[in-house]
Structures are given as structure tokens and as C-alpha cells.
């Protein structure tokens, strides 16, 4: 119980208080402690990669052994992972190496493909969001149309009323206003709430009220 509960809680409490104070102390010792902590965080994260590797191998080898549906994907996953690891160890990571070629000509295009799918997904999600079924949805639709037009050259071209009176706002101006005022205000309101929430969760962790992060209930 001491190792699984009291000690981690004590570490969380001490580290929480120390680093809360550290933020306000512009002193050599304070900075040294912070850098020391940062170095430790990097070291621990590096060991985390070993855990991740172990988890993947275990999960997929179990799937292959049990011949669960789709086990062939596990074979491909393990084969790719091992070939990349061995490729990097044996052939290095320099330009032109197996690792580099696989990364640049296989992994990067596949990732880009996934990212480009986002365009279609946004279109589909926008269609659902902008269906003008209620007054709120209609307002959202209007705002979206104005912002979209204001972000492309067409927005300026079709703002014909600015020819009559240059002081009238064009679609670009209205789009900028929507982004800078109502949108920014709501974003900041959320950000302020988030900041307070984070502070409170941190306080609960430091005081030992919130313990779920230790891996379980109380």
C-alpha cells in the first residue's frame, strides 16, 4: 500500500508544491531544478517507447497465435515494425537508406492520404451542421457562409455595396469581425474555463483528492 498509494501521493504533493513555487522564483537553483526535472521527463518518455514496443508485440503476437479475425493485419504490422527497426539498425537512417526510403516514400504519403481525407470529412460534417432547421442553425449557416466568402478573393469582389460607400464593411471585413470578436470571445471564454479547470484538477492531484491517475479508485 505504501509503494502504490502513499509514496506516489507524497511525490505528487512535493513535486506539485515545488514546481508551483518554482514558477515564481527567478533563481539559479529554481532553474536548475526545473531543467533537472525536464531532463528526467525526457528520460522517462524514452523508456516509455520500450513499453510501447512490448505492448505492440504482445498484442499482435497473441492475435496471430489465436488466429483471431483479421490476424493477417497483425502479421503486416509486426513485419513492418521489425523491418523498420532492423533497417535503421543495420542500414542507418541517412538519406538513401532503407529506413529513410520507407519513411519518405511509404509512411509520409500514407499519412498525407489520411490527412487529406479530412477535407471530405469536413465537407460532410459541415453539411450536417449547416442544415438550417432551427434559428440557431440558420445563424450558424449565415456566419459560416460569410466567413467562407470572406476568406477567398470572391468575397471582396462581390461586396458591391462598398462601391457606393467605401466606409461600409465588405464581406472580408464582416468575416474578420466574426472571427475577431464573437469567435475570439467565445474561444477565450472556453480558454479561461479550461485554465480554471486545470488549476482545480492540479490542486486536487496535489492534495491527494484526485487519485484516479494512480491507476484506480481510492
Amino acid at each position: 500500500m505504501f509503494w502504490k498509494r502513499q509514496l506516489p501521493l507524497a511525490i505528487a504533493f512535493i513535486a506539485g508544491v515545488v514546481f508551483a513555487i518554482q514558477y515564481f522564483v527567478p533563481h539559479r537553483i529554481s532553474q536548475t531544478i526545473f531543467e533537472w526535472y525536464t531532463d528526467w521527463a525526457i528520460i522517462i518518455a524514452t523508456f516509455g517507447a520500450i513499453l510501447g514496443f512490448y505492448s505492440i508485440v504482445r498484442l499482435h503476437s497473441n492475435k496471430i497465435r489465436r488466429k483471431v479475425p483479421g490476424w493477417f493485419y497483425s502479421v503486416i504490422t509486426l513485419a513492418c515494425m521489425l523491418s523498420m527497426v532492423l533497417g535503421a539498425i543495420i542500414g542507418g537512417q541517412e538519406t538513401g537508406s532503407f529506413f529513410s526510403n520507407m519513411y519518405n516514400y511509404v509512411f509520409v504519403p500514407i499519412s498525407a492520404t489520411m490527412f487529406s481525407l479530412l477535407g471530405f470529412y469536413i465537407a460532410s460534417a459541415s453539411y450536417r451542421a449547416f442544415r438550417a432547421r432551427t434559428a440557431k442553425a440558420t445563424g450558424l449557416l449565415l456566419a459560416a457562409v460569410i466567413v467562407m466568402l470572406g476568406r477567398v478573393p470572391l468575397g471582396q469582389s462581390i461586396s458591391f455595396w462598398t462601391k457606393w460607400n467605401p466606409n461600409l464593411p465588405s464581406l472580408v471585413d464582416i468575416a474578420n469581425w466574426i472571427m475577431d470578436v464573437p469567435n475570439m470571445a467565445s474561444k477565450r471564454a472556453i480558454a479561461l474555463g479550461v485554465a480554471l479547470g486545470m488549476m482545480l484538477v492540479s490542486l486536487k492531484i496535489i492534495l491527494g483528492i484526485e487519485r484516479t491517475y494512480l491507476g484506480g479508485g481510492d
Binding site: I44, G48, L51, G52, T212, Y213, L214, G215, G216
Partner: peptide, 10 residues
Amino acid sequence: PIVMLVAQET
């Protein structure tokens, strides 16, 4: 991976 460990325990 570290999140995974904590999630497993949780």
C-alpha cells in the same frame, strides 16, 4: 505508452 500503463491500471 505511459498513458497506456496508467489506463491499464485504471
